[in-house]
């Protein structure tokens, strides 16, 4: 891909084991690229290093081998051109919602008038206008999550990294958030890398699903999801072509979660 925004090139990661044990190999040569405006979901069994990939893209962790490139430049040190939406909302409890959302602009030296306008717009976009003066502890989990997303969208990062952002939400809130994310990302033309362990979520949201294997993980499959948009996140099975897309991902993923294999297929031997 020539216009790749984010490229993972032969990423390897080994974590030292506690004591004298053998170090844990987590990532074993991950290769994939994310194009401009693309929504890529990364899915894999737990402990396969999905979140580690995001930390590398944010420049918070240097890979043991290989390199992550952002617009062709190797990432070394904190990457301020990306936005990070963590699993928990992680709003600053000592700041009001408006101050939380404003912070990235403040840190980037943007003037007060522009900050005020953009905070207003960002809160309206996620449906939180009217809650500017509330502290995070006064907001529900879903509202905190919206705040966290607004805080990331507000500075229009080049790539948005989302680490199982909806994993901790209840099922209904989660669908509403997925729907909102789809609308927001389409409107903003955002490039998104979305970590999840939920196949339905991956298939219904993403343009491409990258399936990772168990530890030490490799890219098992890179499945394009060509479902028309906007997609129905509330009844995913009603999207034409959803079954086939789901099956394409699941058929690769199921080999990784320790289910007994059906028919003559034999489980892939560990590399």
């Amino acid at each position: 891909m020539t216009d790749a925004v984010l490229t993972f090139a032969d990423i390897r990661q080994t974590f030292p084991a506690p004591g004298d044990g053998a170090p844990t190999r987590v990532l074993d040569g991950i290769d994939f690229a994310v194009g401009r405006g693309e929504f890529v979901a990364v899915i894999g069994p737990s402990g396969c290093g999905k979140s580690t990939l995001l930390q590398m893209a944010a420049g918070l962790l240097a890979p043991t081998g290989g390199e992550v490139r952002h617009r062709g430049r190797r990432i070394a040190g904190v990457n301020r051109a990306v936005g990070f939406v963590p699993q928990q909302a992680k709003l600053f409890p000592w700041k009001t919602l408006a101050e939380n959302v404003e912070l990235p602009l403040l840190l980037r030296g943007i003037g007060p008038a522009e900050r005020r306008d953009r905070v207003g717009a960002a809160l309206r976009a996620v449906g939180l206008d009217g809650f500017e003066g509330h502290y995070p502890g006064q907001l529900s989990g879903g509202m905190q999550k919206r705040g966290s997303i607004a805080r990331t969208l507000i500075y229009e990062p080049d790539v948005i990294l989302m680490d199982e952002p909806f994993g901790a939400l209840d099922a209904q809130t989660r669908m509403v958030m997925q729907d909102d994310l789809q609308a927001l990302s389409r409107a903003a033309g955002a490039t998104i890398v979305f970590i999840t362990h939920d196949i339905t979520e991956a298939v219904v949201l993403a343009d491409r699903v990258v399936v990772l294997s168990q530890r030490p993980s490799r890219v098992l499959a890179d499945v394009a999801i060509d479902l028309p948009r906007p997609r129905d996140v509330f009844e995913p099975f009603r999207n034409p072509g959803f079954d086939a897309a789901y099956d394409a991902v699941w058929s690769r993923f199921r080999t990784q979660i320790g289910l007994p294999s059906r028919g003559p297929r034999v489980r892939e031997p560990a590399p």
């Binding site: 944010a58 990070f84 500075y155």
Partner: peptide, 8 residues
């Protein structure tokens, strides 16, 4: 880490 990525 989040604050660093935000540009602090």
């Amino acid at each position: 880490d989040l604050t660093l990525v935000m540009g602090a």
